[in-house]
Design a protein around this nucleic acid. Sequence first.
DNA 1: ATTAGCACTCAGGCATTTAGAGTGCTAACG
DNA 2: CGTTAGCACTCTAAATGCCTGAGTGCTAAT
Lengths: 345, 345
Amino acid sequence: MELSERQKKLLAAIVERYIATGEPVGSKTLVDALGMPVSPATVRNEMAALTAKGLLEQPHTSAGRIPSGAGYRYYVDHLMKQYDLSPVEKRILDAKLRTASGDSRQVLETASSLLAELTHCAAVSTTPSDASAVVRRVELVPIGARTAMVVVLTSSGLIKSRVCRTDSEITVDMAETFYNLVNENFLGKPTAAVTVAKIQTLAVSLGEKALLMTPLLVTLAQLAATTERTQMLLEGQSNLLGYREYAQNAFELMDFLRHAEPLDRVFSETPHAPNGEPSVVIGRENPYRELQNSSMIFGKYAIAGHESGTLGLIGPTRMDYARLIPSLQYLTEIVGKVLSDNVEE
Amino acid sequence: MELSERQKKLLAAIVERYIATGEPVGSKTLVDALGMPVSPATVRNEMAALTAKGLLEQPHTSAGRIPSGAGYRYYVDHLMKQYDLSPVEKRILDAKLRTASGDSRQVLETASSLLAELTHCAAVSTTPSDASAVVRRVELVPIGARTAMVVVLTSSGLIKSRVCRTDSEITVDMAETFYNLVNENFLGKPTAAVTVAKIQTLAVSLGEKALLMTPLLVTLAQLAATTERTQMLLEGQSNLLGYREYAQNAFELMDFLRHAEPLDRVFSETPHAPNGEPSVVIGRENPYRELQNSSMIFGKYAIAGHESGTLGLIGPTRMDYARLIPSLQYLTEIVGKVLSDNVEE
DNA sequence: ATTAGCACTCAGGCATTTAGAGTGCTAACG
DNA sequence: CGTTAGCACTCTAAATGCCTGAGTGCTAAT
């Protein structure tokens, strides 16, 4: 797509103005705003050319132009000047995230909240998942006579725990049997290997102890499963209600986002730059009908060098890409850093 | 307020019809629907009387009547016939909640989700808080050389854990010092007594070990604080978008609900029946402007006999009280039961 | 006490008008 | 040739007026 310098300047101006005001922009407004040394008529000619190339569209004849999907795409890819966060803002975000450190879920929750607040969009994050993760450690914490907490620690730094009630008292002997069983069968194995099926075969060899042991082992399997399954956290859906473009179909979108799992498909199908640059999916580029009025920006965060999960945001196509992309990028970076702290050296 | 039998019957019919259709109901519709042995004119007279008593109101002269706040109130207090859940539904709810048992937060999350789904309203729940709770047990779970998980168990059955990183290695010696310190100073004490201030005074007596110990103790204090602080969980906000009455001010309400803390004030200020009956706050009775188009139904769930937290729902004033009140009541009951399981005998 | 009849009110739907913003085209200009 | 002024044209949004139908309150008759 070949554009003259003037056309580029105009396209950028139109996109930015439309993002700011939400109103179609006309030739006159444009000359006034830019202080251009040409007349509205000239601008009109250029706008007609841009429309012919498919970069702009008209809601109706007597309105100004708004960027088309391709228009936003060109803007994002070639014209946009990114506005980074100020050092102060960065430090604030840093601090807020650090206080949540420890529990990965809580880190992601705060990250999503911060992102939503920062961008006035809906923010989504997926819990880290690492197919190559193995079980590094399992602990049994006594809680009561018949209650214990099972703790699983993976090589990717995930720590998950869950309380388990058993039918009989948990004796020292039982605990020992449990640890032995775990050490022999699961430690160092991929988390995917800790399944209920595997446990059933083990139970056979346990004889009479099996009955007492299974609740603990099943809990362990459930925990292992949660480390595998990526969960979606969504924050700030209500931000979207503020935008005119969602006035009509707010309900539809909200309902789609409630069961956010399909988003994962978008995340994985979109080819993304390996250098940590966020991906941008604009309007119609989106595979889901419900999202075709929306844009998404998302990036992978890396725990100890491994890409593990995604942080993203969803907003109207008319979003402030120049500001939001760097914001998202910064947050994925520090989320990765904070979460990497959990991985032992 | 004295009403004739016929007036009661009419009021109930009007409320129920308006709840079902959302349209103002007129005299003709009413006779048709009820198959009453009187003419529309008679009904009109009665309706005029009910309007005079403040139980009905007219959106405008040429429309039918809709119930006023007082009308709903009278209906809820005197006329309504509650529809209990079917045994099948109850069993399903039971089962779904049991699978979440173990973590109290997760129980409340599922309870809220179920409630939201069941009622098509927004559901809110507060984490249990028990001022009389004492620290029953503290455990330190080794995670890595410099990382440990602190687990706190309270007499009210709450289990909270958090990962803590320290500056130096966690030796057996350190762990022992930690346990001694905890046993002597915090075990059996109210959770409110585990404060950073208290820890600082302890640190003095520790001498050189203080520096190593403080991260662990501070984590402990944070955990104790989380057991104290009631958290709010909100689910199903998007359900509200489906109702006509929220079409206008959806954003305002959503925004209010985001920071749900103020709801706690409503919960505590409303006098509630001690026999486990849910409280109902209708429209204007609500202290917050943002909620004056809404009604709330909520009840306290009890853990081992102590009222601990609240389960509630928020929807349009025009909600199906007769069905929702029993639903909420049933859920508070079983949430209480499930959470009570965590309290050791 | 109940009812039929009737005049009255008012929101919502529909067509019409008006104002204004923005366009595309053409002819003139440097 | 690129740029510009001028102008007729298009189309939306807002304003206006009319009409219809649902629903009411009142009155007089049963």
